[in-house]
């Protein structure tokens, strides 16, 4: 007997997998909408913490999905959520890879690519906005976000360095 919560998790992420044009970062607003506002699996603060943990572990940024699953249904939930999020899109990719090579220069292919690009960028921008809003409740947290944004747009500092400084600042109560 499979626990209903695992089926629920799988159902949510199987759908998201096929909607995640632009990758995992582009569906963060939708994951937030479902996990916090529709399903009430967690609070805004929980979501922000899971996001931070996913950034503190090595690996692809889709890891946030396994942490949502873990929060809802433990380790098994984490595995189910990750497989559901990656499965359908991988099958689609497998099926399409051959055709893509064949129609490399087709005008419709180029139009689809050019048409999807601005949608994807808008989605990732929305992710940054939603995540900042859930993470920042104090002036010092806003200051950390602002400094990170400025530094990553104007310098070539390694992102890990900025995350490290932000973690240290937070540990000493400045966040």
């Amino acid at each position: 007997m499979i626990p209903p919560i695992l089926i629920e998790l799988a159902a949510q992420f199987l759908v998201l997998s096929l909607l995640s044009i632009g990758g995992a970062n582009a569906v963060i607003p939708e994951i937030h909408l479902r996990a916090v506002e529709t399903e009430h699996w967690m609070t805004d603060a929980d979501f922000a913490q899971l996001f931070a943990l996913s950034q503190a572990a090595p690996g692809p940024n889709v890891l946030i999905v396994s942490l949502i699953g873990w929060k809802v249904a433990g380790v098994l939930g984490g595995i189910v959520a990750m497989l559901a999020m990656s499965g359908p899109s991988s099958l689609l990719t497998y099926g399409v890879a051959h055709a893509w090579e064949r129609w490399r220069d087709a005008p419709w292919r180029i139009a689809i690519q050019r048409g999807l690009a601005p949608v994807t960028v808008g989605l990732i921008l929305a992710s940054g906005y939603i995540l900042t809003r859930t993470a920042d409740h104090t002036w010092s947290a806003y200051a950390i976000s602002g400094a990170t944004l400025l530094l990553s747009l104007s310098t070539r500092l390694h992102p890990l360095l900025m995350l490290g400084v932000a973690a240290a600042a937070g540990a000493f109560g400045f966040a």
């Binding site: 970062n25 992710s127 920042d136 990170t148």
Partner: peptide, 25 residues
């Protein structure tokens, strides 16, 4: 301190995603 470090990472990492989007834009 652990919760604070997590909040710090969260504030910084969310801005990194916003910065990525602005670069892509």
């Amino acid at each position: 301190a652990v919760r604070g470090a997590c909040s710090g990472v969260s504030a910084s990492a969310s801005a990194l995603i916003a910065a990525t989007a602005l670069k892509l834009a």
